[in-house]
Computed example of a mutant assay.
Amino acid sequence: MARLADDPPADSRDGFTAILNAGLPTKRVISQGLLRDEQGRVLLCELTYKQEWDLPGGVVEVGEAPSIGLVRELEEELGITVEVRDLLTVNWLPAWRGWDDACIFLFDLGVVDSSITEGMTLQPTEIKAVHWCDPSEVRSRATDAAIELLEAVDAGSLPAYREAPKQPE
C-alpha cells in the first residue's frame, strides 16, 4: 500500500484510520421506495439498462444517508419529490450477473394518486417508462429480487433485515 509524504503518520489515529479505510471492503448501498397508488398497485420503473422492471430508487452516494439518496434519485430520475416514511426492511442481495453484492434499504413512500406519473420528468438515460403494476404484472415484469421482496411485503412477513435468495444467472 503506497503512502504519500503528507499522509498522517501510520502510528497516529488518523494514519491508522486512513490505512484501514483504504484496505477494508466497501458495500454498495441501494435505496428503493415502495410507492402505491389508490388501487394498491406498485410503481415500477422500466429501465434502459436491463429488461426487467424495478422499484424506483438507486445507488446511494458515498457519505449520503440512504433516505436522502432515495429522495435525490427520485428527483433526478423521475422529477418528483417524495416524503420518505418508515424503513420497511434492509435486503441483502448476493452477487448477481456480474454485480457485486449489495444492501437495499426499502422505504415506504406511501400512497399517491395514480395521476402523479403524468407529471413525471423521466431521466432518459436510465428510465424508459414507469408503470403501476398489480401482483400479476409484478411477477411477469419485475426483477426476481423485486418479485420476491414484494411478495414478502404483501404476505406481511417482512423482518427488519433479510437476505434475498441467490438468483439464477
Rank of each mutant, 00 (worst) to 15 (best):
M1F: 07
A2Y: 11
A2L: 13
A2W: 10
L4Y: 08
A5P: 00
A5Y: 05
A5T: 09
D7T: 04
D7P: 01
D7W: 06
D11T: 14
D11Y: 07
F16I: 02
F16V: 02
A18M: 08
I19P: 00
N21V: 02
A22L: 07
A22E: 15
G23M: 09
G23T: 11
L24N: 00
L24H: 01
L24Y: 03
K27Q: 15
K27I: 12
K27C: 10
V29T: 15
I30A: 01
S31Y: 07
G33Q: 06
L35C: 08
L35D: 07
R36N: 04
R36Y: 04
D37S: 05
E38P: 01
G40F: 03
R41L: 01
L43H: 05
L43Q: 03
L47E: 11
T48D: 05
T48Y: 00
T48G: 13
W53E: 12
L55D: 02
L55P: 04
P56F: 07
G57H: 04
E64A: 12
E64Y: 12
E64V: 13
P66K: 09
S67L: 00
S67V: 00
I68Y: 09
V71S: 13
E73M: 05
E76M: 05
L78A: 06
G79E: 07
T81R: 15
T81E: 15
T89N: 06
T89Q: 02
W92I: 12
W92Y: 15
W92H: 14
L93P: 00
R97Y: 05
G98C: 02
W99Q: 15
W99H: 14
A102R: 10
I104Y: 07
L106W: 03
L106C: 09
V111N: 06
V112G: 01
D113A: 14
D113S: 11
D113W: 02
S114A: 15
S115C: 09
G119S: 07
L122I: 04
L122S: 12
P124S: 10
P124D: 06
E126K: 12
I127L: 07
A129Y: 08
A129P: 01
H131K: 14
W132R: 09
C133T: 03
R139I: 06
R141C: 03
R141H: 09
A142E: 07
T143F: 00
D144H: 10
A145M: 11
A146T: 15
L149S: 05
L150S: 09
A152L: 10
V153I: 14
A155L: 12
G156R: 08
S157M: 11
L158G: 03
A160F: 04
A160D: 15
Y161E: 14
Y161L: 14
R162F: 01
A164D: 11
P165A: 10
Q167S: 11
P168G: 10
P168Q: 12
E169V: 10
